[in-house]
Every structure is written in structure tokens, then in C-alpha cells.
Design a protein around this nucleic acid. Structure first.
Length: 826
DNA sequence: CATGGCCGATGA
DNA sequence: TCATCGGC
């Protein structure tokens, strides 16, 4: 499936923080609430508002006090905090819980934020089409669904059932897939609600930008489909700034330079023009998005690439002296440590780099921000102490501003610090960690002879599943490692020759850049593992190591449990999971995060629009927009229905839409016949006509497939010669395309057909038999930390097609030969 | 003082 | 590597 014909979904949780609070404290259900970050100043800043409160005029821009004034019975649960900062781990966990549900439906899942995810369900749609007759799709299969350009989904379905006879630009194949996509998304959202109790909204389109765009059109608890042929109608009123990537400065300059404000106006410029005014890449991107084309693939990514925390110190709260700087760095470092610990347990990875960022107030009053990074070395113990001390070093070393005045004895900073942040990233699998190996080696042999470092095999996302199966007891290893750090303070490393080669290895960066990125290793290639009798094949030391580990486990488990009380870090983990605070009250300065539910609204049923409009009565511009879109939609529908007798719908009565496949014919007496094709009851008198109709459908289906195929072949042949000067040759595109399909398919179909597997009762995952014992060990390790996670986070894999832009040749509109199939009913 | 904390991407 | 942007 090529990039322009995907089915892409953006699912966004409705006022997520509020929902989490409501779930934790059911008392709040049905009441107006807003989550605040507790800040003694004016009742705290609101970061999420539920829909009850929105209906009463509470908005995100208000402070807690204002909300209370406008809505006296509003409840204001506040984000808990730790170390003087907001603790949003509650919401992070909730977000993961939801994403795990998504994950069951497709491996092609990209978490975009704490409460948002893109899903590429092209594969699942194709699968479903094998067993699902589109003509049997009915509205009951997708409640709360809207289709842009239609007053209701039924109309959209009718269009599909009639193959869009009344619509000149109708791409039947595409629309059909979006409809099936909507069915699947309904199932996903139902599963999410069933299993987590959370409601969400979704946008369904053929790329990420459009899916994101329309997701906010109908909220809450609704989903919106944007078929290709409705893009222009939408664009005619859509402000440029509403489109992702155009909401900031770039969007402003685009509007200024081109003197436009609506997306439709962007279509007036050809690609070259746009490339000249902006750069090549942006020009092409603008040209494409103006036509509803966005080739950005959905990346398979569940875990964040970096973990960080930061804090503002505004006004008088700025940091003026070294002691306060130390204090805050310590807090930030400790938080990172906590989160890293959890992350290591869940994902078996460890960061290779940390970054400290800051901003200082310059003498002229301006704030300047900067950041410095540090690559961890083998001897580094990844703890809060390291993070904070390293951060301080980097700060003091760094160019200007932060140096301490050495002469003063109270150690004032040269310039006040207004912002501090520490983050860690560049994760690698723990099994690749030299440090872990050293510790384990010490553990098993009693000495830490230098373990020869494994050649770096740059594990990429799609290899992770396999990589993971190669790991041995990673979770356990990590706990071991941790265990030794807290109980065996004199680290075994001291016997290692302390090489002070602190030089950052330049080579790595270079090789990374030159790499064509990942996919050179096909997923099918890697299960090369010798699954026969692995112990023989393994190096002797490894065998010993594993058996030793197994023997030591119970000892270790005991020690760990005993140490739970002693070790504040471990206790911390446990506490977070076991004591669920119910809307905790917090006295410390706070912070938080929540997405704004961008509630622009679009065309739907009129009552729905009216309902939604109440939500932004404070924004006259939005109300005007909604109104104009509604008018536009209504008129366009009126126009459409002029050409089509089957779809005639009185404005005031949005009632029964006539399904073409079940024409309403006044033959009440007649016997009925159940059509085997679509399952509908057909009057016996027209059953022949009806089956002719299905035949016609099939014929046209084939015809369209044919035309599509021809079109595709043509474009490939056509673009091939001129493509050579572009960034990447067409061949590469094809291979990466095929790999996408292959890897997706590998998830849909089967993991591996040769290797004997066992299904783990803990996580339901199929595990190669030879690794099963180790797999169980991993669960044991998890339980030891009081089941920090109820289940193993399934490793992501699947395609990781690198974002290489195809040259932007505009897709020709798909004008299919269109026979009036509904003539069968006349 | 007055969204703030958090994350990803990109170009030089 | 760092500065900056965009968005939640």
C-alpha cells in the first residue's frame, strides 16, 4: 500500500487529566471539574477542563479562582507533586494503559504525546475487507461517527454503496477503506472504554496531518472521517494556522509572504514557487499539504526517546546562588533517576547521554537559553547524584552566564537562572550495556576481568523484538545491578583499569549519519538464532552466568525485599504503584501538562454543532467558522442531492437515509428474500435486479482495481528516469515499501513458523521455547518490584521506514469510469 | 513573574 | 552538538 492510500488514525483522549481524576475519584463524575497545577497564586493554573465545566464557561486560560467564580460548584483536583515539581506519572501510566489497548489492534502505533497516538491501520483494514462486505456496514457499527462533507455517516455510506455516482472526484477504493477504518476505530475506542473507562475522540483520514486535523472536529467521544474528496470543501474555510506545523512562526511567514490565510489559497502556487519562497523541503511539503497529501509515515514507537524534567524559576524565584542551583539540580537529577529506574524495568534500556539545559537572565534583561550534553562512560553510575553533579559541571564549564563568582564567599551566580532542565536519551538495550556485563561478570566469577565489548549493532526499533528475545534476564540483571549499587557500595569497578579516556567518540556520530538507516536488516533475517540446543553454542562463561543467576535468585529476592525499606529508591517505585492517591492535596509549587483539546468544529449534524458551539462561545471566531462551515456543508449537500434522487434529505428532518442496497419500495405484502451478499432483506420481486446490482458492484470494483493498478505502474515507470537526480532512487522506495508491508504482515500473521514457541501465561506473548525460562525469570524480576507493571510492555517492532520524502509529484485525481449503478433500481 | 513542563524534530 | 521551533 503506497503512502497516499493508507488509513491513518489519530486518537486523542478527551480532557485526559480530568478523566484520570474522575476515574480515581468517582465522586467527581458528572460534576464540573478542572485539573489545576497547584500554585498558590490565584488558585493555580488550569491544565484540563472537563466537558461539564466547559459547558459552564470554564476555559483553560483561567486560573482556579476565576473558574470558581464562574462555576462555584466546580471541583479542582490538583496535580500531585514531588520535590517541588508536578508529578504527572499518574497520567503517564494512564496514557500507557490506553496505548497498550491501541497496540493490540496494530503494531504501527506512534505515541505522539501522553494522551495521543497515531495508528496506521492500513493492514487491519485490508484484513477486515477479506471477511467484511462493505455493503453490510451499517451505522450501528460506528456510533458517534461523522464524515466531513456529509451531514451524517449514513450519507457517506450511501455514497460508498453507490460508488459515489453523484460525486465526480469520488475515489471508491479509498472511501471504502476509510469506512472500514471507521468501523475498526469504533472497536478500538470501545475497547479502550471497556478496559480503561476512558473516552476518546479520533480522526480518520489517509495521512497524519489530516487525521490530526479532523480529530478535533467532533468532541468528545466522537470520531470524524475525512474522505479525500472532502478536503477541498474543508480547505476553503480552513485557516492555514490550524494545520499542524503551520501553527507557529512558519505558518505566520507563509501567510504573510503569500498573503493568504486559508488552506485553499495555498493551492494557487506551484511547487517551484513555494520552493523559491521557502526552501526546497518546505516548498514541497506545502505544495503537498495544500492538496491533502502528507507522506509522513506513522512510526512504530511506543516509548519516548528521551526522559527529562525541567522547571521554570520566574521573577523573584530565579536562582541567584550556587546552593539553590545545587538543590534544584539534585531534585531534577533524583526525579530522572526514579523515572529511569522504572523505564529500565519496563523497557530494558539505558540512556547513553544526558543533556542539561538552562536559561539565564542577561544583564540587558533578555533571557538566553543554552544546553550542554554529556555522554555517559562505562564507569558512570546512572544515579541522581551523577546527573546533578555532571549537570553542575557542564553549567559551570559552559560559556557565559552561569559561572560562579569565586571571590564571593556566599557564592552568588554571575547571572540569575530562570530555567533548568535535565534530560537523558540515546537509549540502548541494557543487554548491550558494558556496565551490566561487568557487574554480572563480577557477580558470577568474583572478579571483573575486562569483558570484551560486543561490537555495537545499533539496534533499531524494528529489531527490538528479536533483540529482546536474545536478552537474558534483562529485568533481573537490572535489579541485580541496582542491588549491588545500594548494598555493596564499593563498586566492583575499582579493579578495572580506570581508563580516563573521556574523549567523546566521534566515530559513532559519523557512522550514524552515513547509515542509510535501519531497515537494511530485514525482520525475516534475524531469527537466525540457534534454537536447537543453545547451551552448547553459548560461550561457557555465559552458561555459568545464567545458571548462577538462577540459583541466586531466591537469595536475591529475599535481599531485595529486605532492602525495600532501606532503599528509598526502591520503596519509591513500590509506593507509586501501591498507594494510589486520590486527588492529593499538595502544598508545594506545582506544574503539569495537558493537551488542549483543540475544539474547532466542523460539519456534522446540526444539533451536534449547536452543542459543540456552546463550548467555545468565548471564541467568536470559532463560532463564526462553525456557522460558515455548516452553511457550506449544507449547500454543498443540497447541490449534491440535486443530482441524486436516492439521496434526498429534507433539511429539517435528518431521518431515514435511503440505502441504495435496500431501496424503499412500497411492496409491503411481498415475500422477502435474504441476500447472501449483503444480508439484507430484499422483496422477492426485485431479487434479480438486486443481484445484478451486486454483480455490477463487483465488476466496477475490478475495473477500479485495474485502473488503479495501471495508474500505479504508470507513475512508477514515469518517475523512474527523472527520479535519479532526487535524494533517493525509486528502487529504494520500493524496497522500503515492501519492507513495510512485510514487517506489518509479520505481525498480523505470525511471529515465526519454525521456532517452537510457548505462550506465556503472564503476558500472553509467544516466546521461543528456548527462551521461555528466561522469559519467566523476567516476570519474576518484575514481581519482585511488586509488579511495577502488570504486564510486559510488548516490544514494538514493525516498519520503521525512515522519513525519506518521496519527491512530491502531485497525485492525479482518481476519476474512475463511473456507471450509474443505481439505475438498476429505476 | 504569571501556563509550565514535557517531548520531538531539524539545520547549521 | 546546540539552538530553536512546534505542539501537547
Amino acid at each position: 500500500m503506497d503512502q497516499e492510500n493508507r488509513v491513518v488514525v489519530l486518537i486523542d483522549m478527551d480532557c485526559f487529566y480530568c478523566q484520570v481524576e474522575e476515574k480515581l475519584n468517582p465522586e467527581l463524575k458528572g460534576k464540573p471539574i478542572a485539573v489545576v497545577q497547584y500554585n498558590p497564586w490565584k488558585g493555580g493554573g488550569i491544565i484540563a477542563v472537563n466537558y461539564v465545566a466547559r459547558a459552564q464557561g470554564v476555559t483553560r486560560s483561567m486560573r482556579g479562582d476565576e473558574a470558581k467564580a464562574r462555576c462555584p460548584d466546580i471541583q479542582l483536583p490538583s496535580v500531585p507533586c514531588q520535590r517541588g515539581k508536578a508529578d504527572i506519572s499518574k497520567y503517564r501510566e494512564a496514557g500507557k494503559e490506553v496505548a497498550r489497548v491501541f497496540q493490540r489492534f496494530t503494531p504501527l502505533l506512534e505515541r505522539a504525546s501522553i494522551d495521543e497516538a497515531y495508528l496506521d491501520i492500513t493492514g487491519p483494514v485490508e484484513e477486515r475487507l477479506k471477511t467484511l462486505n462493505v455493503n453490510t456496514v451499517n451505522p450501528d457499527m460506528m456510533p458517534n461517527t461523522f464524515a466531513l462533507g456529509y451531514d451524517c455517516v449514513e450519507e457517506f455510506m450511501t455514497d460508498i454503496h453507490t460508488c459515489g455516482v453523484e460525486n465526480i472526484d469520488f475515489d471508491y477504493e479509498h472511501a471504502k477503506r476509510l469506512l472500514v477504518g471507521a468501523v475498526i476505530v469504533s472497536e478500538i475506542r470501545a475497547a479502550v472504554y471497556e478496559e480503561t473507562g476512558y473516552r476518546c475522540s479520533a480522526g480518520i483520514a489517509h495521512n497524519k496531518i489530516l487525521a490530526k486535523l479532523v480529530c478535533g472536529f467532533n468532541k468528545p467521544n466522537k470520531q470524524t472521517v475525512l474522505p479525500k474528496h472532502s478536503v477541498n470543501i474543508l480547505y476553503s474555510t480552513l485557516s492555514v494556522k490550524k494545520v499542524k506545523h503551520l501553527g507557529g512562526k512558519f505558518g505566520d511567514t507563509v501567510c504573510e509572504v503569500l498573503r493568504i490565510s486559508k488552506m485553499a489559497e495555498l493551492q494557487k502556487f506551484n511547487e517551484k514557487e513555494l520552493q523559491m519562497r521557502f526552501d526546497e523541503k518546505n516548498g514541497t511539503w506545502l505544495y503537498n499539504i495544500a492538496r491533502g497529501i502528507d507522506l509522513e509515515p506513522v512510526q512504530a514507537r511506543f516509548n519516548p526517546k528521551s526522559i527529562g524534567c525541567c522547571k521554570n524559576f520566574r521573577g523573584k524565584a530565579a536562582l541567584f546562588d550556587l546552593d539553590s542551583l545545587r538543590k534544584w539540580l539534585k531534585d531534577l537529577g533524583d526525579e530522572i533517576e526514579d523515572r529511569l529506574e522504572k523505564d529500565a524495568l519496563e523497557n530494558n534500556r539505558t540512556p547513553k547521554q544526558m543533556v542539561v539545559s538552562y536559561s539565564v537572565q542577561m544583564p540587558d534583561g533578555r533571557d538566553t537559553s543554552s544546553s550542554r550534553s554529556y555522554n555517559f562512560i562505562g564507569e558512570d553510575e546512572l544515579c541522581g547524584e551523577l546527573f546533578s553533579s555532571k549537570a553542575l559541571e557542564l553549567l559551570v564549564e559552559s560559556s557565559e552566564g552561569v559561572k560562579v563568582k569565586e571571590n564571593e564567599n556566599n557564592r552568588k551566580l554571575k547571572a540569575p537562572i530562570k530555567f533548568l532542565g535535565i534530560s537523558v536519551g540515546k537509549f540502548e538495550d541494557i543487554s548491550d550495556s558494558k556496565k551490566t556485563k561487568k557487574i554480572l561478570d563480577y557477580f558470577t566469577t568474583g572478579s571483573s576481568k575486562d569483558v570484551t565489548e560486543k561490537p555495537k549493532d545499533n539496534v533499531k526499533q524494528e529489531d527490538k523484538t528479536i533483540e529482546k528475545s536474545k536478552q537474558k534476564n534483562s529485568g533481573k540483571e537490572y535489579i541485580m545491578q541496582k542491588f549491588f549499587q545500594v548494598t555493596n557500595k564499593p563498586q566492583p569497578q575499582n579493579s578495572v583499569p580506570c581508563e580516563e579516556t573521556k574523549q567523546p567518540t566521534k566515530t559513532e556520530a559519523n557512522t550514524r549519519q552515513n547509515e542509510p538507516e535501519a531497515s537494511s536488516t530485514k525482520p525475516e533475517q534475524k531469527p537466525v538464532q540457534t534454537h536447537a540446543n543453545n547451551n552448547q553454542n553459548k560461550p561457557h562463561s555465559t552458561t555459568i552466568l545464567e545458571s548462577t543467576l538462577d540459583k541466586q535468585e531466591s537469595f536475591f529476592a529475599k535481599m531485595l525485599k529486605q532492602n525495600l525499606k532501606k532503599d528509598p529508591q526502591i520503596r519509591n517505585i513500590v509506593a507509586e504503584e501501591t498507594v494510589r492517591p486520590i486527588t492529593p492535596v499538595c502544598d508545594v509549587v506545582n506544574c503539569g501538562e495537558e493537551t488542549n483539546d483543540t475544539d474547532y468544529s466542523g460539519s456534522t449534524i446540526n444539533e451536534e454543532i449547536d452543542k459543540s458551539m456552546a463550548l467555545f462561545e468565548d471564541d467568536p471566531e470559532e463560532v463564526a467558522r462553525v456557522t460558515s462551515i455548516r452553511q457550506l456543508m449544507n449547500t454543498s449537500n443540497a447541490l449534491a442531492s440535486e443530482d441524486c434522487e436516492t439521496v434526498s434529505e429534507p433539511e429539517a428532518n435528518p431521518q431515514p437515509v435511503v440505502q441504495v442496497s435496500t431501496p424503499q419500495i412500497e411492496l409491503p405484502q411481498e415475500e422477502m428474500f435474504d441476500c447472501s451478499e449483503c444480508g439484507k432483506s430484499i422483496p422477492i420481486g426485485i431479487v434479480e435486479m438486486h443481484s445484478d446490482y451486486h454483480l455490477a458492484l463487483r465488476l466496477r470494483d475490478e475495473e477500479r482495481q485495474q485502473v488503479r493498478k495501471e495508474k500505479q505502474d504508470k507513475t512508477i515507470i514515469k518517475t523512474k528516469p527523472e527520479e535519479t537526480k532526487k535524494k533517493r532512487p525509486q528502487e529504494e522506495q520500493n524496497t522500503s515499501k515492501n519492507e513495510t508491508i512485510a514487517s506489518v504482515a509479520s505481525f498480523l500473521v505470525k511471529i515465526d513458523n519454525n521456532i517452537p514457541t510457548e505462550t506465556c501465561s503472564e503476558c500472553g506473548k509467544k516466546v521461543p521455547l528456548e527462551k521461555f525460562g528466561e522469559h519467566l525469570d523476567f516476570h519474576e524480576a518484575q514481581k519482585l518490584s511488586r509488579e511495577l507493571n502488570k504486564r510486559v510492555v510488548p516490544q514494538l517492532a514493525g516498519s520503521n521506514v525512515k522519513r525519506k520524502r518521496k519527491s512530491a509529484s502531485p497525485v492525479k485525481k482518481n476519476k474512475m469510469p463511473c456507471r450509474p449503478i443505481d439505475s438498476f433500481f429505476r
